[in-house]
Amino acid sequence: MIQVPSRPNSPTDEELNRYILTRYALLGIDISVLPESDEDAPMDQERLLEHARSVLRQDAAAADFAIDPQLHLPVAHPAPFTAWTDEQSP
């Protein structure tokens, strides 16, 4: 019997935290020098991880946006692109 793929459960905060810290460590970035939780500090680990989890979840949500790859090419600089592609009449 062939197994039908199912959508995995959404990762928990703890699972995402491990993923995030592993990614930072892989790049050689140490966030342990930040206070763990201190709302008076300019930044702490708790706020940083909360934001990072938000970025990851938004990143996953972007996958749901359908966009025609034939009609809408990726363009880094849209406004000058109108000139570079001769979208300006003489």
Partner: peptide
């Protein structure tokens, strides 16, 4: 550095 390359491409498509 947590944003995936495929999302970054999609962001540029969306801007276009």
């Amino acid at each position: 550095m947590l944003q995936s390359a495929d999302t970054y491409v999609k962001v540029q498509q969306a801007r276009n």
